[in-house]
Amino acid sequence: MPHEQQSSESSSSQGRLTREAALEGYRRMVRIRRFEEEAMRRATAGEFSGMHSSSGQEAAIVGACLALRDDDYITGTHRSHGHPIGKGADLKPLMAELYGKATGICRGRGGSMHLADRKVGIIGESAIVGGGIPLATGAGLSIQVRGSDQVSLCFFGDGAANQGTFAESLNLAAIWKLPVIFFCENNLYAISTPVVKSHGQPDVAKRAGGFGIPGVIVDGQVLSEVYEATAAAVARARSGAGPTLIEAKTYRYDEHCLGLQVPIAYRTAEELAAYRSQKDPLSLHRAELARYGVNAGDVADIEKKVAAEVAEAVSVARESPFPDPAEVYDYLFSNPIHYPPDSGR
């Protein structure tokens, strides 16, 4: 699937989303939501083992991705499905990867926690919490050394903000003004541990000052707000002024992972219900679309197309073959370099 034009068409000169970009944003959010809902159904039915859903976090993901170009890099986390979809990836190889098929984006070797689609700029979805932050910083270093104007955006969660790699990487990016956007999807809980029980100070963005970089808090449920803050950070990075830390306050509807048993409730049913009814990113953005003059028919059209896309992705995944066990060593190493025949002594 060809990638949509990105930031050159995404915003007017004031950094606000154009109508087309706002629509594209809605489409991608719906793709994440429907993909996740369908994947959860299929996993629950035993068609593949487990996943970490991003339902509820769509605006944070897509708002950030819309501010990036096709050739910008991102890294992500175990909660990996939303990122490639947010960046415009084809759903079929993603779904096939969940099923462990040979046609999966990682040829069945990565799975749900590692839906890295290199074609849309993803250089890793790390299941080690905080593991992707240095990688994104390194992509920023590479951009700087090569003299390119790309940027690198790093998705991570509230839990990762306490990992040593967070502080080390922000400092590295700060001292060399690397073109990195550190983007925290703060969904308030790391599995079952609330931020107030794991953070000495609850606002992740306030840690930025210690490294001499700007820190910005945004409402992660409002796509346009996320977009505008990220676009500003991207512009800052491209100009050579260095990194930014963005904290998107968002919310996760499902449990940390499918099937997680929660013997002691860590959040109330009321809180969850309130987010679903008053802070749902898709609903909020539909209201925004109405202000752009988009009508209910266009919205329904998107929903219908996405539903078909997701259904197709599932059927292609189910019909695809599994990888051949005889090929298990494929991708262990690259091809070796060739040495001259008389070398070796």
Partner: peptide
Amino acid sequence: KRLRNVPISENSFAGMGIGAALTGL
């Protein structure tokens, strides 16, 4: 530009090297 003297932060500067390796260096 090509000789990077880093702060004491082994896990992350090793990872930074990996990120750079993933993206053309």
